[in-house]
Simulated scan of single mutants.
Amino acid sequence: MAVIIFFVVRFFFGNDIAEKLQELAGDSEYTAPVRIYSATAEQILGDYLENEVAADGRYRGAIIDVSGMTKSVGRSVSGDMYVTIAGQTRLGIRSFQGFFPDSANSDLAAIRKGQRIVIRCRVDGMFINVIGRDCMIPMQ
C-alpha cells in the first residue's frame, strides 16, 4: 500500500515530495514501553530452584520490582554495591542480589538489615543467588 501511495504522490507532486514522505514514513518506528513486573524474592528464587531453564525464560532480561526483607547491603570483591533480599529456601543461603550503580550510594546507605524493601532490577539469571543488574530504588 505504501508503495502505491509513493508512486501516486510522485506522479502528481513530483519526486521531492514523494521522497520526503518516504523518509518520514521510515522514521516513525513505534517503541513499546518497557513493562515492569512485581515479584517477591521468595517467588523468584522458588521458580529458579524448581526449574532454572523455565525461570530464565520468564525472568532473564525482564525489569522486575523485587520485594522482601533486606539480608545485607555491601560491596562485592570488585567494588560493586549490592543489596541482598532474603528468600525462603531449604538452607536459607540463597537470595536475590541486586547490583547498583555508584550513584545509588546515598540510597543504599539508608537501608538497614531486616528492613522490608522494593528494588527495581533487570534480572540477569542465577549464579548461586538470583542476580539483578542496573538496580534502583523505585519512587514510592
Rank of each mutant, 00 (worst) to 15 (best):
M1L: 13
V3M: 12
I4R: 07
I4W: 07
F6K: 08
F6R: 09
F7R: 08
F7M: 08
V8K: 07
V8I: 09
R10A: 09
N15K: 13
D16S: 09
A18I: 08
E19C: 10
E19Y: 11
E23V: 12
A25C: 09
G26L: 15
S28P: 03
S28C: 10
S28G: 10
Y30L: 12
T31H: 13
P33Y: 05
P33D: 07
R35A: 10
S38L: 04
A41S: 12
A41V: 02
E42C: 07
L45C: 08
G46Y: 07
Y48M: 02
E50K: 15
N51W: 07
A55L: 02
A55V: 02
A55E: 02
D56E: 13
D56N: 15
G57H: 05
G57P: 02
R58Y: 11
Y59V: 03
R60P: 01
R60N: 11
G61I: 01
G61V: 00
A62F: 06
I63F: 08
V66F: 01
S67H: 03
G68Q: 01
G68P: 00
K71T: 02
S72H: 08
S72E: 14
R75N: 12
V77K: 15
S78T: 15
M81T: 01
M81N: 04
Y82T: 03
T84N: 11
I85F: 07
I85C: 01
I85W: 03
A86R: 14
A86M: 14
G87W: 06
R90E: 14
G92M: 09
P101H: 03
S103F: 01
S103E: 10
A104G: 01
A104E: 11
N105W: 08
S106A: 12
L108N: 01
A109E: 10
R112K: 15
R112F: 12
I117F: 05
R120T: 04
R122Q: 14
R122C: 09
D124K: 11
G125H: 02
I128N: 14
I128Q: 10
N129F: 04
R133D: 12
I137M: 10
